[in-house]
C-alpha cells in the first residue's frame, strides 16, 4: 500500500536509536551482545501482551484485564500440573494456560459484545474479579518449584552471548520463538483475513461495519477470546522464564503495555495501528526499564521515566493532531478536489 510520508513508526525508531546512542555513550555497555540479548529476553512477555492489546485498541476497545488473565491462567495451570506430577510435553502446559485464558477472554468478550458495555470498564471489573479469584479463592502464594517440563523449557536457550570485556553471559531464551509465533499469527490475522480487516473496520466505524456485512458482535467477541488465549500463553511463558510462579508479578503491566502500543502510533480512538509500531513502542519502554542500571540511575527512577515517556510520546502525536485541526477545515477538501 502506498505510503506517502514517514510513518509514526519511523519516529519511534529514531527515538530508540538516539536513546541507545546516549546510553552507549554514557555507559559503553549498550551495544554489547549480552546487553542486546538481555533486552530481547525482557522484551518477550511485554511484546506478546502488546500484540493482543494492539488488536483490542485497533477495534476501538481497551483491555486492562490481561495481566490478571495471564496471572490466573498461569497459576492455575502450574498448580494443576504440579498436583498431577505432570511429566509430558510442555506444549500441554501452554494449551491448558491458553484455555484458561480463553474462558476468561470469552467472559470479557461476552460482556462487551452482548451487553455493548464500554470495554475499559468491563475489563476493569473482570480484572478485579480474576484477581479476587486468584488471591481469594485460590489463596495464591508464590510457587517456588515449577514442573520440570516447564523448568526445562524456560532454561532452554538458542544461544549464549558473552560480553568479551567482562565475561558476562546472557542466554537467549527459546521463549522468543513463542513471541515470533504470536507476532506472525497476529500479522496474518490482521492483514490476510477478513476477520482482521473487520477489526480495523469496526475501529473505523462500527455502524458501517454492520451495514457492510461484518459480523461485528462475533468479531468483537472473538477479539477478547484471542486476547485471553494469548494472555494465557504469555503468562505461561513468564512462569517458564522466571522459573517460578509469582501470582502478583504481572499486575500493573497493563498500563505500560497500553502505553507502549499507543506510543507505537496506535490511535486510542481505534481504526489504526501497526504491529511494527507496537513492537517498537514496547522495545522503547523495555530499553528504559532495563538501561537505568547501565546509566547507574537508581531503579526507583523507573516509574518516573516511564511516565515521562508516555506523556511525551502520546503528547507529540496528540499535539500534531491539535495543530492540524487548527488549520482551516476547507483546506483538506480543496486539496482533494483539485
Amino acid at each position: 500500500m502506498g505510503k506517502k510520508r514517514l510513518g509514526h513508526e519511523f519516529y519511534v525508531f529514531l527515538a530508540i536509536v538516539s536513546l541507545s546512542l546516549i546510553i552507549q555513550a554514557r555507559s559503553g555497555q549498550f551495544f554489547t551482545l549480552n546487553n542486546i540479548v538481555d533486552l530481547m529476553v525482557s522484551f518477550i512477555v511485554p511484546a506478546i501482551f502488546a500484540m493482543c492489546e494492539l488488536i483490542v485498541i485497533i477495534s476501538g476497545g481497551m483491555d486492562v484485564s490481561f495481566p490478571a488473565v495471564a496471572s490466573l491462567s498461569m497459576f492455575a495451570t502450574t498448580k494443576i500440573l504440579l498436583s498431577m506430577n505432570y511429566t509430558g510435553n510442555v506444549f500441554f502446559a501452554f494449551l491448558l494456560s491458553g484455555s484458561f485464558g480463553l474462558i476468561m477472554g470469552a467472559i470479557n468478550g461476552a460482556l462487551i459484545s452482548i451487553f455493548n458495555l464500554p470495554a475499559l470498564i468491563v475489563t476493569l471489573g473482570t480484572q478485579s474479579i480474576f484477581m479476587g479469584i486468584l488471591q481469594g479463592a485460590l489463596n495464591a502464594q508464590e510457587i517456588a518449584e515449577i514442573p520440570k517440563v516447564m523448568f526445562d523449557f524456560g532454561n532452554a536457550k538458542l544461544f549464549v552471548a558473552t560480553n568479551p570485556l567482562n565475561g558476562l553471559k546472557s542466554n537467549m531464551s527459546s521463549s522468543i520463538l513463542i513471541l515470533f509465533a504470536v507476532v506472525i499469527i497476529t500479522y496474518v490475522f490482521l492483514h490476510f483475513t477478513m476477520w482482521g480487516r473487520g477489526v480495523y473496520a469496526i475501529g473505523g466505524d462500527s455502524n458501517s461495519a454492520i451495514r457492510a456485512g461484518f459480523k461485528v458482535k462475533q468479531i468483537k467477541f472473538s477479539i477478547y477470546c484471542f486476547v485471553g488465549i494469548v494472555a494465557g500463553i504469555a503468562g505461561m511463558t513468564r512462569v517458564c522464564m522466571m522459573q517460578n510462579c509469582q501470582p502478583n508479578n504481572l499486575i500493573g503491566m497493563e498500563m505500560t503495555v497500553i502505553a507502549a502500543v499507543v506510543l507505537g502510533g496506535t490511535s486510542v480512538k481505534g481504526g489504526s495501528g501497526t504491529i511494527i509500531g507496537a513492537l517498537l513502542g514496547t522495545f522503547l519502554l523495555t530499553i528504559i526499564s532495563n538501561s537505568l542500571l547501565l546509566l547507574s540511575i537508581p531503579t526507583y527512577w523507573q516509574s518516573f521515566f516511564t511516565g515521562l515517556i508516555i506523556i511525551i510520546g502520546t503528547g507529540v502525536t496528540s499535539f500534531q493532531l491539535i495543530l492540524s485541526s487548527h488549520r482551516l477545515p476547507s483546506m483538506r477538501k480543496s486539496k482533494n478536489e483539485a
Binding site: 477478513m194 480487516r197 456485512g213
Partner: peptide, 30 residues
C-alpha cells in the same frame, strides 16, 4: 446510500469498495 455513506474513514478507497463483495462471498482470507 445513507447520508453518512457507511464508509470506513480509516481504510483505503480500495478496501471500502471491495469489502462488501468479499463479505457477500463469505471470504475468510484477504
Amino acid at each position: 446510500i445513507y447520508q453518512d455513506f457507511s464508509l470506513f474513514p480509516n481504510l483505503s478507497v480500495m478496501e471500502n469498495l471491495a469489502y462488501n463483495t468479499e463479505l457477500a462471498q463469505k471470504r475468510t482470507f484477504v
